[in-house]
Design a protein around this nucleic acid. Structure first.
Lengths: 201, 201
DNA sequence: ATTTGCATTAACCAAATGGTTAAACCAGTT
DNA sequence: AACTGGTTTAACCATTTGGTTAATGCAAAT
């Protein structure tokens, strides 16, 4: 009667953890089965093979992580406000699922074209839309002249990178996860400030 | 008589390529042997086993990449000048060996403690030294009050991250490696500007 | 020419690993 | 009670993979 967790769901949960932890190559089907507390054959029964299972996890992660952010980029709001919203949402998202950025960056490097195809599904890339908006604002003289690519690279770098080196940051500064999160919360404000200051007239 | 490439060197060159390309788990000893054009047994003859070979490559990469940057952090020069030198050298380094940052970030996440031990070899971490300098400049009222960790995170994020997503950047913007390098050259100036502007009074 | 000792190779081995299968389990149906 | 269908398991299989070994090559020393 209570929300029982059925086998396919158990598998997904376990697979997500193991794949994120060890990557596609490092993950063992047996590890996933153990983590899920089921027989290894079940993995193949429900997901055919390792590749398919990985693909399923990838789709899941990409689709729970990226759409919210993309939708912000597509909003029709002033640039500065958009930057604030985007950074804040991005960082919040990473706080909630801190392992996803590393997973995504690894995937980008494993097969960039495939990654884009999976993530975009034919749509125009939201980043391209953002670049257009930046150019417009520049043409209207609302912001300093900058290379749009550079601006976007700056924003995204400042949002993502700290999470990619989180373990290192914690060791060097001697802080715990909890305090690391506080640092990142601060960045929700710091990063937009830094960026906006660099382009406002 | 000419600079012949002997077997151990051939192995190192091949192993570096394969490990960087596929990671520790994805790399096959046979791949490395093929790439080097030698018998697989040679790998074990000279480097004992996969782990040791990987470790050797790791040490090589870390030691040709990091020392220069660390030495800049330890220079006794004004903060702004240090930031300029550091970013410029960092980005230049990455232009020359674009695969290394990804390799290092992966390693950081594989085993953060081991990574630090290997890289620091007992010394004080240069980043800690930099943090002290930032605090001093702040106390002397030379720069705006900022969290030193945040400042360092900003600098490093802006220098490294674009290289981690290079394939993606190239696809989205439709540029070639050559033009990507030009973008990064620009950043040698852009990044210090952005950072310094954010802390100068 | 023979010996010596490192370098190299082909063949081999054991363990790990992704994947399969045949049988058992178990709820609901007839 | 027997049947039916999806589910689960233990045992098994073929291949891959890291690693070993015994034999061979080969250059320098004797």
């Amino acid at each position: 009667m209570p929300a029982e967790i059925h086998t396919p769901e158990k598998i997904l949960i376990a697979a997500r953890k193991i794949f994120i932890d060890k990557g596609l190559d490092g993950a063992r089907m047996q590890d996933i089965a153990n983590e899920a507390g089921i027989n290894k054959a079940m993995l193949h029964y429900y997901f055919r093979n390792k590749e398919k299972l990985f693909e399923t996890i990838f789709d899941q992660l990409a689709n729970e992580f990226l759409p919210k952010l993309f939708s912000i980029l597509e909003l029709e709001i002033p640039l500065f406000e958009k930057i604030e919203k985007f950074c804040s949402a991005y960082i919040q998202q990473e706080i909630e699922t801190p392992y996803v950025p590393m997973f995504i960056v690894k995937e980008i490097n494993r097969d960039p074209d495939l990654f884009l195809k999976k993530v975009l599904r034919g749509r125009n890339h939201p980043l391209v839309i953002a670049m257009v908006q930046i150019k417009q604002e520049m043409a209207q003289g609302n912001i300093k002249p900058v290379e749009p690519v550079q601006l976007l690279l700056n924003i995204i770098s400042l949002c993502i990178f700290p999470f990619l080196v989180q373990p290192m940051v914690q060791i060097i500064t001697g802080i715990e996860r909890e305090q690391f999160v506080k640092l990142m919360e601060q960045r929700k404000v710091l990063v937009p400030q830094l960026i906006i200051q660099s382009i406002k007239l």
